[in-house]
Amino acid sequence: MSFYNVIIFILFLIYSLNVFSQETLNNKLYEKPYANNALKSGKYFAREETRNIELDEFENPGMIWVERGKDLFNLQDGENNSSCALCHKGDTNSLLGVAASYPKVYKNQLINLEQKINMCRKNNMNLPKYKLESNNLLSLSSFVSYISKGVPMNVSVAGKAEKYFKKGKEIFYQRIGQMNLACNQCHDEIAGSYLRAEKISQGHINGFPSYLMRWEGIASVHRRFQFCNNQARAQPLEIGHNDYNALQLYVAWRGNGLPIETPSVRR
């Protein structure tokens, strides 16, 4: 055996080991805490009274936001006197199913539905962006999600989204705060147990924006993340923060397949 043969053999060995470890890493990367048939929407962890309020659209207080969102969607505004509906053809046409694919990469930036709506307002209607978490913005995103009710969540984590997905997953597994708790410790390991009076769910976001009885109002996914950060006594991030979007992408992906249930109702 010549010297070169040995070198080539070693290089090949290194290469194949590399490919192998890359593959096992990727297998791990896309490992899901819940198999598709074990996915359970948050409403099954909520108390029966709460679930019944959610399921009855006349009683569901989140429907107030949906109705207001519908009005805003049809409202003609701004110098061009345009409305969302004029471009998006009424309430069930072109935006049907769209909510299931957010967060999504748009021009190299991961954005969520609220941010996309704001971009449309600014770029297509020449109107100022709504403040994040404002009533108007959440009303619109509630309405846009509501028209996709029943459509399975289906975010993409491939291509440009991959780096955000990795980041989001890292955040999900990172122990934080004075309580030193990570999302997975509550929502993967002990879902179904009680934290005080609350049954811990699998932590899905297919019902967002979600009506929270304790606040008598609707909350975005990021607002819920802040709330869970508070439970761990961790410093919450700002609503709209890139890291929250990355986390939202990971959380949406691990619940891919769950039907949209906006507006969900929780305590």
Binding site: I176, G177, Q178, N229, N230, R233, A234, Q235
Partner: peptide, 14 residues
């Protein structure tokens, strides 16, 4: 050795 502790609680034990 705790990460991202809420400002209210940094440097304090529970």
């Amino acid at each position: 050795n705790l990460i991202r502790v809420d400002k209210k609680y940094t440097g304090k034990s529970i």
